[in-house]
Design a protein around this nucleic acid. Structure first.
Lengths: 217, 217
DNA sequence: ACTAACAGATGCATGCATTGATAGATGCAA
DNA sequence: TTGCATCTATCAATGCATGCATCTGTTAGT
């Protein structure tokens, strides 16, 4: 279903994957603050494992751009800058619009609509429960569902890589500007409506406006 | 300059990076054939190092999708499928068209044109010298220069990740259909011309046609 | 201010346990 | 007796732990 790392970890997952998912959540939920230095030894100790999987987890975290690896020094938790937000969301919207375009000349939006409705509900439930990370995850899944419908495997891979970063953005949007959530919900609902009516052009146009309203208001 | 891995390795690079770059070339130049099984020990022995950096290199190779990592078994060199080609180039063209669009409303195409001319020469020289990988690398740089001009850091990252895969595609196009190179050259030259004339619309349109002609003829 | 020693962290090597595949042996049925 | 399925022992490769060397930033001392 193209979910976020911490949603697909179970007990049998490799330790490295567990540690990466755990650390990603720590960073996104700001228990590891931007700027602080993480070490392999710390990570290993925190998870009761050795440095080897910890190192592997560090590489993952760097791939997700949640930390910046400084040779012979450590891993510094990154700050979400304005330009990162802009660039990241520009790519997401690029993928979304492209997927919407692909859908128009293919199977249509109907198969997607039901899933979007479900994911929208999940978002609302998470928010009501005060589960900010759950909300961010559901928001990611909502957009991922649209993009995935384009059927491009390479796009899928890239979106998966972007996942934790996108979740981090949404998490911060919820924390920093809770008022923007109403708009977000309205637009997601509208997107779902348009999907149900298979209006791909309006769908694409709304996606563009949606980004601006939610993250750059 | 946004180059390929084996172009930015020097003696002081980490062993893991060296091994990954070396193995990537072995795969792209088909000394490691699709389907064969690579092991960490092999890689380590071939480079006179231990398994630890070899493992790290394996993770890179998997990220580049040059191998598929099978747990407790090894790394299988992937095959370039038709769908991979389609999806990969679809993403490249998506980035290119977007970059061209961004340029139109920004600084214009002129600053890019000179670089494209240089890279086009590099392609021709590599081909004359029978340096197929050099040709593929220059081709990548040509497209990368266009995309990078869009100024989106996230796009840059993704393109970098795609680099070895794109080089592999071009390498195989040269090997399999050398006749297609004339078309490729003509179109790259035409793109350069359009860039010099700052005709962004024609530029974008030609990019789309270019992909089809080179890789799906 | 400059230098030198120190401490902490990575980079890399290596050893051990675990696991998945495979070849060979074994037993049973036709 | 031969063919086939199954079971087992072995082996190769990873997953992980750990130890040592190297490098970098810092701090104490002159």
């Amino acid at each position: 279903m193209l979910t976020l790392p911490w949603e697909r970890i179970d007990d049998s997952s490799p330790i490295a994957a567990k540690m990466a998912a755990w650390a990603a959540r720590e960073i996104i939920e700001q228990r590891f603050a931007p700027g602080i230095l993480l070490t392999e030894a710390e990570l290993a100790a925190a998870q009761g494992a050795s440095r080897t999987p910890a190192r592997e987890a560090m590489l993952q975290l760097e791939r997700w751009r949640l930390v910046r690896l400084v040779p012979k020094k450590g891993a510094i938790v990154t700050t979400v800058t304005g330009s990162e937000r802009r660039d990241l969301l520009a790519v997401r919207v690029l993928f979304e619009v492209d997927a919407a375009h692909a859908l128009k000349s293919a199977s249509g939006l109907e198969p997607v609509a039901a899933d979007l409705r479900t994911l929208l509900d999940r978002q609302r439930q998470a928010l009501n429960a005060g589960d900010t990370l759950g909300f961010a995850s559901a928001d990611y899944s909502f957009h991922a569902r649209i993009i995935r419908s384009g059927g491009n495997a390479v796009v899928d891979e890239m979106l998966t890589t972007m996942g934790p970063r996108l979740a981090r953005l949404t998490y911060q949007a919820v924390i920093d500007r809770p008022g923007s959530l109403d708009t977000l919900f309205d637009e997601h609902a509208e997107l779902t409506d348009l999907a149900e009516r298979s209006d791909a052009d309006a769908f694409g146009a709304l996606i563009r406006r949606h980004i601006d309203a939610t993250h750059f208001a």
